[in-house]
Amino acid sequence: MAATDRQVPEVGLSEEAARRIDLWWATVMVGALGLVFALLAVFGGVAVPVLLALAGAYIFNPMVTALEKRGMDRTWGTTLVFTGGTLLLVGAVLYLVPVFRDEALKLPDFFRRASTQVVPKVEALLGTSLPELVRQRTTELGEQATQLVQSAGPAAARILASFAGNTARFVATLLGLAVVPVLAFFFLQDYPLLLGKMKDLLPRRSVALVGKRFAEVDEVLSAFVRGQLTVGAVLSVIYAIGLSVGRIDMAIVIGVIAGFGNMVPYLGTGVGILLSLVGLMLSWQGPWQLGVVAGTFIVGQMLEGFVITPRIVGEKVGLAPMAVIIAILAFGELFGFVGILLAVPVAAILKVVLRVVIQRYQRTNLYTGDARAP
């Protein structure tokens, strides 16, 4: 923002009043994020289903709103979107579960061949022997993968039995899973009403400015929640198709990992290329495969940069790659898997909060050195 823009006060508010409202808003936002993590830690069984339902309502609200603008009643629009989403989800599960089951059955042989074939090829390529520790670890990885797949069924049965043995926890888990779509439906149906009631609670003088700040948060969050999930899904399909054309082992699994891993800068592409090279060594049929693998990732990245993001998704989340990586590491260390899932959305919200605080600071006489500044 230019220096001249920073000196323009909000319409209808003095600079001092606007600054006070913004600082209160920033404090409330940080406190609300802290409350969310506290609730997850203390009442995870209740908080997780509610958060999942709210996330679903937030994701699908633009579709229902678009139908409502076309004259459809919101209840019918919610029902239509909900039914369509449910059918798509069921169809995807019915298709993907057998596919991933077949891919999982290949894992033991994949790791076993990787430990016995890839290491010698790497040694021949480098012209030197790898340390014995590397050879030993790759062999152990293949054996452990075999044992893991063989024990997956009994392990799942034991987990189910342990839940069933603890009747209260088993019932709570089932209720938690069952209540998510119900809550999501009603949150989605009443989304404008809920927002309206929250807006009615705001002090009248601060409605416009606070509404503007929440619009900024919504812009950043929607770029991540809707945008990055869309990018991950499209890239997964592109990578899976390309690697399948190249007859690479575990093409679908590698494609999904590389596609959705793209949410973490460099991680998805790096891991995808590494796994593809391992699969390439195990299924070598000629130099053409190397060209297909390289072309798949090059085309995927070019489409992501020039077509998917600008034309389909719009602006990205707006966080620097290093900030995303640090947020994931920090929140993962503090809050575990839930922290990893919430790291980037929370970091995006905090970015808006920090930007607002900095803007207000840059309008003070402490920053400008102007005694006349408010």
Rank of each mutant, 00 (worst) to 15 (best):
V8I: 15
P9H: 10
E10S: 13
V11E: 09
S14P: 01
R20G: 07
D22L: 10
D22V: 13
W24P: 05
M29N: 09
V30Y: 05
A32H: 08
L33V: 13
V36C: 06
F37L: 11
F43M: 12
G44C: 03
V48K: 13
V50T: 06
V50N: 08
L54I: 07
A55G: 14
G56S: 02
A57H: 04
Y58I: 01
Y58F: 15
N61F: 11
M63C: 04
T65D: 15
A66D: 11
K69C: 02
R70S: 14
W76E: 07
T78A: 09
L80A: 14
L80I: 14
F82Q: 01
L88Q: 03
L89K: 11
L94C: 09
L96R: 06
V97R: 10
E103F: 12
K106S: 12
P108G: 09
Q117M: 13
Q117F: 12
P120E: 02
K121W: 12
G127R: 01
T128S: 07
E132A: 15
E132W: 10
V134P: 11
Q136F: 14
R137M: 15
L141H: 00
V149Y: 03
A152R: 02
G153H: 02
G153R: 10
A155M: 11
A157K: 12
A164M: 14
A164L: 14
N166A: 15
V171L: 12
L183R: 06
L188P: 06
Y191C: 09
Y191L: 08
L195M: 12
K199L: 08
P203E: 06
R204D: 10
S206E: 02
S206H: 04
A208Q: 11
F214Y: 15
D218G: 01
E219F: 15
A223Q: 05
G227W: 06
V234D: 02
L235T: 07
I238D: 01
Y239K: 03
I241S: 07
R247P: 13
I252V: 13
V253E: 00
I254G: 08
I257H: 08
N262F: 14
Y266T: 12
G268T: 00
G268Q: 04
G270Q: 00
V278D: 08
V278E: 08
W284C: 04
W288Q: 09
Q289F: 00
L290E: 08
G291L: 13
G291R: 11
V292F: 04
A294N: 06
G295A: 12
G295L: 05
F297K: 05
P310F: 05
R311N: 15
I312M: 10
V313K: 05
G314E: 03
K316E: 06
L319G: 01
L319V: 06
L319R: 07
I325R: 04
I326R: 02
E333N: 14
G339D: 09
A343P: 06
A343S: 14
A347W: 00
A348T: 11
K351W: 04
L354R: 13
I358V: 15
Q359E: 12
R360P: 11
R363Y: 00
T364E: 04
D370V: 04
A373F: 03
